[in-house]
Simulated assay, not measured.
Amino acid sequence: MRTPNASRTALMLAALLLVALPAGVLARSSDRTKPMLIDADNVVHALDESQPTVLSGNVVITQGTLDIRSARADVSIRNNEPTQVVLTGNPARLKQEMDDGSPFSADASRIVYDLTTDTVTLTGNVTVNQRGNTMNGPRVVYNMKTGRVQATRNGTDSGRVSMRIEPKNPAPADQPESD
């Protein structure tokens, strides 16, 4: 049986972890000072940290311009500190406005944020959009310590990585594009 305190604790732990989601990538710095709102159909929380806290069913997390939507969020805790969050969905979605006002979004079947290594791994039909540029592929790993992004095939997956980089000064609209 879940107590109200267990549910509240689960949501607070999820909030602590999710507030740290890829700061370098999803960087509207003022969002961290805003309240975080978390809605889910269900929360299951183990008081002894033996299992992750699980938010499931229409998970919606918002904080300022940050908007996260997934079917499920698993939050692992060790020594009262969040260590990992796993978002799953069809797809799991992250959206946020950057400090310069430009939009950032990422969709994937699975998004794993590992706080112990400061990495975010997106797998399964990954699409990342930022400032009009896109990256698509089966797997994208972002290292928040180094700022490095690596996009690869996923094991035996035959999918390829594709990118579209928009020119800084695009041609006027009345000129036809040339390939």
Rank of each mutant, 00 (worst) to 15 (best):
R2I: 13
R2G: 12
T3F: 11
N5S: 15
A6L: 14
A6R: 04
A6C: 15
R8K: 14
T9N: 08
A10H: 03
L13Q: 05
L16H: 12
V19L: 10
L21N: 02
A23W: 12
L26G: 04
L26M: 12
S29T: 13
D31E: 08
L37H: 14
D39A: 14
H45N: 06
H45W: 09
H45P: 03
H45S: 08
D48V: 11
E49I: 06
E49Q: 08
S50P: 02
S50Q: 09
T53N: 04
L55A: 01
N58Y: 04
V59E: 00
T62S: 06
T65I: 09
D67W: 09
V75K: 00
V75M: 06
N79H: 10
E81A: 14
T83R: 03
T88A: 01
N90E: 09
N90H: 12
A92M: 01
A92R: 00
Q96A: 08
D100Y: 06
D100K: 06
G101T: 05
G101D: 04
F104V: 04
S105H: 08
D107Y: 02
I111E: 00
Y113V: 02
L115Y: 05
V120Q: 00
T121S: 08
T121Y: 07
T127S: 14
T127P: 11
R139M: 05
V141L: 08
V141T: 04
Y142Q: 02
N143I: 05
R148C: 15
A151G: 01
G155R: 08
G155V: 06
G155N: 13
S158C: 13
S158R: 10
P170Y: 02
Q175D: 10
P176G: 11
